[in-house]
Design a protein around this nucleic acid. Structure first.
Lengths: 152, 152
DNA sequence: CTAAATGCGACTAAATAAGTCTTATTTAGA
DNA sequence: TCTAAATAAGACTTATTTAGTCGCATTTAG
């Protein structure tokens, strides 16, 4: 039920990248894997690996060569946590039996549990979809931090 | 982001157990790990392991000895998916940084992402809490199954 | 007191994920 | 046009977690 650490890192990296993505894209210093690793504290090799996956998923665009680098493929407001998590971890489903085309479960149709997972999946997906990169970059409301201490 | 298969099994086992828990607790045939394994198709050793954890978490009660067995510790309506998942997987948190008392993250306070995880955690927890064992045992509404095909 | 049935905990093996390294590609400068 | 430097992309190795198996301790009917 926990997010993989790679997905966690990916969110941090994308958040950092969006801060570099002002009016002009590659304006304030060139943005590349090394820069991101330095800013976020994520190990460089891991950062490179994640950059690859995020690029393959179409969330960032990369130009190689001597003056190359990376940039967000879309504006921060149109990239959600769901996009990032899904890019790194694959289909966003809490149980494998709800992934379309999967028929490994012996119970299948007679299973009374399965339909409930669908509802829960939908809820989780919505929660992750409602948070965009743009809102992540905003300064955290002190109110939210305070209230969080009582949620777990 | 996926549920561990152990937690998945645990839900199926508890669901099966609740069907055996009518008016009289140990009435219809004795309920033990072997019976559950047979009914659900979950491997016996794995079932025994899960029974141990669920018992330790206080969700089921076990009596050993020659006429022993297991039974639900509480009525099905007051046992939720959150209880079961948490019993098997530990604290219900999508990221380790939101678990109380954890300070492994180097970013900590300056992290703009953290407060959002708290909100998402709360949402997921609520979704799992809203589904009780009692509702799981009910026949799945055909309507739900149909609509699920379009959720993922 | 004995024996059978059961739950409980420790151990081993497999799968997955994280991290490291090497290779291929591109472009500025000579 | 060629060379070299900088970068992303992909393959590999290692480590951690997870699933599965086995043997032991405990309990109670006879």
């Amino acid at each position: 039920m926990r997010l993989s650490s790679l997905a966690d890192y990916a969110v941090v990296l994308m958040s950092a990248a969006s801060r570099h993505c002002g009016a002009a894209l590659l304006a304030e210093g060139k943005l590349n894997a090394s820069t991101l690793a330095l800013e976020t504290g994520v190990p460089l090799p891991t950062t490179q690996k994640l950059v690859s996956r995020l690029s393959a998923a179409g969330l960032i665009e990369s130009t190689r060569g001597i003056g190359g680098g990376i940039r967000l493929a879309r504006p921060p407001a149109s990239i959600s946590l769901a996009d990032i998590v899904e890019a790194v971890e694959g289909p966003l489903a809490i149980t494998t039996c709800t992934i379309d085309g999967n028929h490994d479960c012996a119970l299948e149709d007679s299973c009374t549990v399965k339909p409930h997972w669908g509802v829960i999946n939908q809820t989780i997906r919505k929660a992750l979809n409602d948070v965009s990169l743009a809102s992540l970059a905003e300064a955290p409301a002190a109110q939210k931090i305070k209230s969080m201490e009582h949620t777990l």
